[in-house]
Design a protein around this nucleic acid. Structure first.
Length: 593
RNA sequence: GGGCGCGUAGCCUAGCUUGGAUAGGGCACCGGGUUCCUAACCCGGCGGUCGAGGGUUCAAAUCCCUCCGCGCCCGCCA
């Protein structure tokens, strides 16, 4: 609860009420620890007001009946301008904010802060959010994209909360998977294993994206290698070559072109990265070797018979079967987790907070990483944001091999086509390019919102009809509400500030309710940055759009008389706040739909 | 077997971090609303043993324990 007057319309009211309660406790003769007062004050009100104060614990401490104590608190609460009414009811003291005052301070703050309304005050603690980091071996399926959407949304919220945030995509160009891609593509097509060639030929489409094209052999190749040890051996030799700095010239180019195709898809979702961090860099600059030296010299290091190095991690609470962490293969090459240690040391050197967005299948990896960091005497740890998989209705995770994967590009294609139909059906007046732009924004907005609205720790079953919904709790609903607000302002000749208003005119219940939702954004942003509960941002945007639509249906804006200017200002504040919410969610602001 | 996560109306989901008054939404379904600022909307209705049991507490969807169901992981893969 460090929200400041400068960024949160509720802050002055909360501070004043808390101070008032503290004084009232003295007057009422009820012992009350000031710290506990805050905990008993329910900020989101309840059925009887804006703030609800639960007196039970203080009544108990004083040995008095709760309703009597509530009455005593209310009676001794010295009136303050922020609060219009104080009423005891049962074991609660209910406070109602002065609606005019709240409307005035909220709208003033929204207009003063503009695109920064909802944001916190700048802090100097740099943070790094690593997310997505999918291997550059083929196109994204929607399961992988959950990582990107959660990570990108969280990074936006963290940045808005005031922290300097750097986002990173860790590109694994060193492992066996990248080597497989190089192995196959460095051969002439005629020398490809028969099953791999068959799987690819006839499927390829001229001009297809590089991630699609270069990734095509991967599933069949993966299956082929399982059955062919001699081919596996070739790949292993290639891994060794790559790691010793003797990668075939096409190796990096393949990773880069596949990655470029993948990033192009994410860019449609407004997901980008401040930095691409290549795993190979940590080998080239010697930091992996330095990590290995430190690991080999710890008391728990073990030399295996074939020359491999491991760490005996018993006593770290790991599952019994994984107490031996191999950090270097018998053939001298490093492992993913070892390179990840080097990567994380580089992050700790630059950032005060290090956050990794990981699928739950990487949970054990995360714990292993923690153990290795401890082994080399590093005291800092990343904070892990773990999300659950997206599964398919038939059961099981999305699998490229099993053909159950839903490709992001395919999903977007479907979504755009459907969105296009919706636009054309209601807007005959629009030019082709305008229709295309709206369809793209609606489609990508629907997909992003559909993923972010669910808590990361919940498993998600992918269903086309849900992902393509443009109604109800959806991205397009929020975008539509923004477009509607824009339209009102346009027609009112008021699409630019200033927006003069008289807060006392905003007295309709739907107006008061709308002001309250607008005023909630700063708290919501702070909460998401603190908790990583990104779904709260989606819930907030829906609530605001929903209340705006109620207001819109309940009272006229442009056709009102005395209230016209004030209502226009309220709509302008809604538009700003909805716009900021869309920004936080990575959805496009649409001026018309 | 062990570790982690999940379980809220027919379906999806918020609330759980920080316990507080009749558990919020959405989809579907039923009934209404457009000579009027965008109906991708709004109003009303229907629908809940918050997986089960026990515990802590003045108070439990929320905290603790046990159990059940589902998912993931337990590689010299990443």
């Amino acid at each position: 609860m460090t929200s400041s007057v400068a960024v949160d319309p509720w802050a002055p009211t909360l501070e004043a009420v808390l101070a008032g309660l503290s004084a009232a406790a003295v007057g009422a003769g009820v012992p009350a620890d000031p710290a506990l007062l805050g905990a008993a004050l329910n900020v989101d009100g309840g059925p009887e007001g804006d703030l609800a104060f639960a007196v039970h614990r203080f009544a108990k401490g004083a040995g008095r009946a709760p309703p009597e104590v509530a009455e005593a608190f209310a009676a001794h609460f010295v009136p303050i301008p922020e609060i219009a009414s104080v009423r005891a009811k049962g074991a609660y003291v209910n406070f109602t904010a002065d609606p005019t005052r709240l409307a005035r301070s909220t709208l003033e703050l929204v207009f003063a802060r503009g695109d920064r309304y909802g944001h916190g005050e700048a802090t100097s603690e740099p943070a790094c959010v690593e997310h997505t980091s999918a291997n550059p071996t083929g196109p994204f399926h929607i399961g992988r994209v959950r990582n990107a959407i959660i990570g990108d949304t969280f990074a936006r919220a963290l940045r808005a909360s005031g922290a300097p945030v750097t986002t990173q995509y860790y590109v694994d160009d060193m492992g066996r998977q990248a080597a497989m891609i190089t192995w196959i593509w460095s051969k002439p097509r005629a020398e490809w294993p028969e099953p791999v060639r068959r799987a690819v030929e006839g499927e390829e489409v001229p001009g297809e994206k590089p991630d699609r094209h270069r990734g095509r052999p991967y599933p069949a190749l993966s299956a082929y290698l399982k059955e062919h040890p001699e081919a596996q051996e070739e790949v292993a030799r290639l891994v060794h070559r790559i790691e010793s700095g003797d990668a075939p010239p096409e190796h990096r180019e393949l990773s880069e072109s596949i990655l470029a195709g993948m990033l192009a898809s994410l860019a449609r979702l407004k997901i980008g990265f401040d930095e691409l961090v290549w795993e190979s860099d940590f080998l080239r600059n010697g930091s992996v070797e330095r990590v290995l030296e430190r690991l080999r010299s710890t008391p728990h290091s073990v030399r295996e018979e074939n020359g491999a190095w491991a760490i005996d991690a018993s006593g770290h609470g790991l599952p019994k079967e994984s107490t031996r962490i191999v950090v270097q293969r018998g053939n001298g090459t490093s492992l993913y987790v070892t390179r990840d240690v080097a990567y994380h040391l580089s992050k700790f050197a630059r950032f005060a907070r290090v956050l990794d967005v990981l699928g739950q299948d990487h949970q054990l990896h995360a714990r292993t990483l923690d153990v290795l960091l401890e082994e080399i005497g590093e005291t800092r740890r990343p904070t892990y944001l773990i999300y659950q998989d997206i599964t398919v209705p038939e059961g099981g995770r999305m699998s490229t091999r099993g053909g159950s994967a839903v490709w992001l590009d395919h999903l977007l294609e479907e979504a755009v086509s459907r969105a296009r139909g919706e636009v054309v059906a209601r807007r005959e007046d629009l030019a082709e390019e305008a229709v295309d732009a709206i369809a793209e924004a609606v489609a990508t907005g629907a997909v992003r919102y559909h993923i972010v609205r669910v808590a990361p720790e919940k498993p998600v079953v992918f269903r086309w009809e849900d992902a393509l919904s443009f109604e109800g709790r959806s991205g397009p609903f929020v975008q539509y509400s923004y477009a509607r607000a824009s339209s009102v302002l346009r027609k009112g000749g008021a699409d630019r500030p200033p927006y003069p208003f008289d807060a006392a005119r905003l007295s309709h219940p739907e107006e008061a309710a709308l002001v309250r939702v607008i005023a909630r954004l700063p708290r919501t942003v702070a909460y998401v940055a603190r908790s990583a509960h990104v779904q709260a941002l989606a819930g907030y945007a829906h609530d605001l759009a929903d209340q705006f639509n109620r207001f819109y249906h309940a009272v006229p804006v442009l056709r009102s008389e005395a209230e016209r200017a004030s209502r226009i200002a309220l709509v302008a504040a809604v538009r700003q706040t909805l716009g900021n919410s869309l920004d936080l969610l990575g959805l496009a602001r649409l001026e018309t739909m």
